[in-house]
């Protein structure tokens, strides 16, 4: 899929931050990836290994936290977990709901050697 272009983006952002903070090498990259994105964590790790070669990210461990899909009912404001696709409020049965979590792709933190 497009894990390679995502890995490239991560690499660029992390290298900029490394330079800003006078770091030498990245040891760990902590990501938050939403359940509802099309990203497959293993594929992303594999893609990252490839794009990180010969860069200060070469030996970095990529830690991926998966963000659960959560919706909120616009009627009764209840927040609930979405597992199977039943976008109906478990409290008031309204279908007027909005997915509020599960589509993120965020670099949270990195650990670097100075």
């Amino acid at each position: 899929m497009h894990e390679v272009s995502i890995a490239e983006e991560i690499k660029q952002i992390v290298i900029n931050k490394l330079n800003e903070n006078n770091g030498k090498m990245v040891k760990k990259v902590n990501l938050l990836i939403g359940e509802m994105t099309s990203i497959v964590p293993e594929a992303l790790r594999f893609a990252f290994e490839i794009v990180a070669k010969d860069t200060p990210l070469e030996n970095a461990v990529v830690n991926i936290k998966v963000s659960k899909t959560i919706a909120q009912c616009n009627e009764c404001k209840k927040r609930f977990r979405i597992r199977e696709l039943n976008l109906i409020c478990p409290k008031c049965n309204s279908m007027n709901i909005e997915v509020i979590q599960g589509r993120e792709m965020i670099i949270q933190t990195i650990e670097m050697e100075t």
């Binding site: 983006e9 670099i107 933190t109 670097m112």
Partner: peptide
Amino acid sequence: MAEINIFENIMKKN
């Protein structure tokens, strides 16, 4: 070793 906060959307550039 230092931990740096980034909290940036990977899709930010797009």
